[in-house]
Design a binder for these strands. Structure first.
Lengths: 128, 128
DNA sequence: TGTTAAGTTCGACTCAAGTCGTACTGAGCG
DNA sequence: CGCTCAGTACGACTTGAGTCGAACTTAACA
């Protein structure tokens, strides 16, 4: 089975199965409670768009800490944005000791809003 | 040629050709200058989501005036929202005498962000 | 030419969101 | 125990968006 690809040759955004024995996720909306307007609002911020896009394109295996993103912002700002993504239902966060790791809820979002993640993956950040 | 349909049976959102001899469009971004983050921000407002959805699902032939939408808001608020949609590149507005009519730039948006309009068409407004 | 009506413009107000410093929490580890 | 370090909580500040009233513009039309 070869992965389906999108118009521009990139492999489509698809989900991998979860490994067992993970810490429980932090509070998040159920799939049915994910609202389009909330998701769009969360993704309308360029920094959060960068975060989600990087997770989609570069996360080799599983979830990642805040530091992995290399974002030049104070920690309190990052907390704010990662919380916004999680509460919108876009990412799932789990606590590993001191670290809080994030990944995109790919299967949930593909089920609820097919095609949306592909738009994020194909996004190009504004130059400057 | 029968129209392709989406997963839930609704006909896919596709564009009709423009009739000739229209008034010129009001200022709007070119297709290449439509930004994903701007479009998502414009669509994250429930009122604007309703406007676009209604245009997609119920506009029988061509574009529609503000009044057609039956929105219970003062005119200055409607001006604000229709301008936001137009400047984001989501709608095109043309002046017909006193009236300013809007329609969705379906072909442009399907080319730039495939699948996005289908998400809007399938959206269900929050109850109450 | 005067009236009507669609829509804009302007300015004021409110509120939510982004930004960030500072203090705090809590796991890991010597 | 006490240090370190990831991340949170809280609060202050600023900015931008949504909301709207009031005055204005301008076709259409009698």
């Amino acid at each position: 089975m070869t992965p389906r690809t999108t118009e521009n040759g990139r492999p489509a955004i698809t989900a991998l199965p979860d490994p067992p024995d993970l810490p429980p996720p932090l509070p998040e909306p159920t799939v049915a409670n994910i609202r389009l307007e909330t998701v769009l609002a969360a993704l309308s911020d360029p920094l959060r768009l960068r975060i989600v896009r990087k997770l989609l394109l570069e996360s080799e295996q599983f979830d990642h800490t805040c530091g992995w993103f290399g974002l030049d912002r104070p920690k309190s700002s990052l907390t704010h944005h990662f919380k916004a993504l999680r509460e919108a239902g876009i990412t799932r966060q789990r606590q590993y000791g001191l670290e809080r790791r994030s990944h995109v809820r790919i299967a949930d979002l593909n089920a609820r809003f097919p095609g949306l993640l592909d738009l994020v993956a194909d996004w190009t950040p504004p130059e400057r």
